[in-house]
Design a protein around this nucleic acid. Structure first.
Lengths: 127, 127
DNA sequence: CGGCATCCGTATTGATACTG
DNA sequence: CAGTATCAATACGGATGCCG
């Protein structure tokens, strides 16, 4: 595990591969939604995100935001007013991630109907 | 929750959105690895996948393969020899998914170093 | 060989209540 | 408003053993 194979371009099979950690990040159900939301709206407050993403609990949202902040994908800005105001905004790094995510999104929109159909057939034949 | 917002292009915030289900599929730790592996090697046997992906248990591999088969992303072919031979191969649908995944992969290779750096800083400042 | 079924410990998730 | 703390439910993942 101390050497990188020659075809390192696709060594996603090694646990140390960046791809693996990326999946840990954006594979997260909420993380990508947060990124897309911030990508669309720009800067957003905690409550705005909470409303917009509807279905996420505060806990998960907080946890997700912390993770993304840790990864340098967004910045958290606290305005010490009363009450406190906290804004989240994508960093350039976060913005750059928007692009591959959009590709996924496009694939989803183009092909998920097929996936759904396949599932129905599979479930019918299996049942 | 019974109506689709006008800007449905980005309604990934609705639980019913395809994007959401896509994440359920490829957000899976192993699923994307299986897809990439099959994309590279073409047809593979269960044991080959098992070796190639190293780290996955039979249970998880089986579960992942079933899911992908259900989603119509790959085909499972059983050759009733003795012993049985089972091959997995991407469908055209599965192949098409390879493309967005590659984009993610490229992003990872280009930017994960930054993410790692951000993490170190964050952890240092937080500790 | 290629699974599936079961058990079991752990990690994630989410609802709820409470705080600065 | 923006969290934190706590607890309960669930999903995940691995080890083991059996089957076609």
């Amino acid at each position: 595990m101390d050497m990188i194979p020659a075809d390192a371009r696709f060594d996603a099979f090694a646990a140390s591969c960046p791809s693996r950690r990326l999946l840990d990040t954006i594979g997260n159900k909420w993380a990508s939604l947060v990124i897309v939301a911030l990508g669309l709206e720009g800067r957003m407050r905690f409550s705005e995100l909470s409303t917009r993403i509807a279905g996420v609990s505060q806990k998960m949202l907080t946890q997700t935001l912390r993770g993304l902040e840790r990864d340098g994908l967004l910045i958290r800005t606290v305005t010490p007013s009363v009450p406190v105001r906290v804004d989240y905004e994508l960093t350039p790094l976060g913005l750059s991630l928007l692009d591959p995510i959009r590709h996924l999104k496009e694939w989803a929109e183009a092909h998920m109907a097929e996936v759904d159909k396949a599932r129905e057939e599979y479930d019918r034949d299996t049942a």
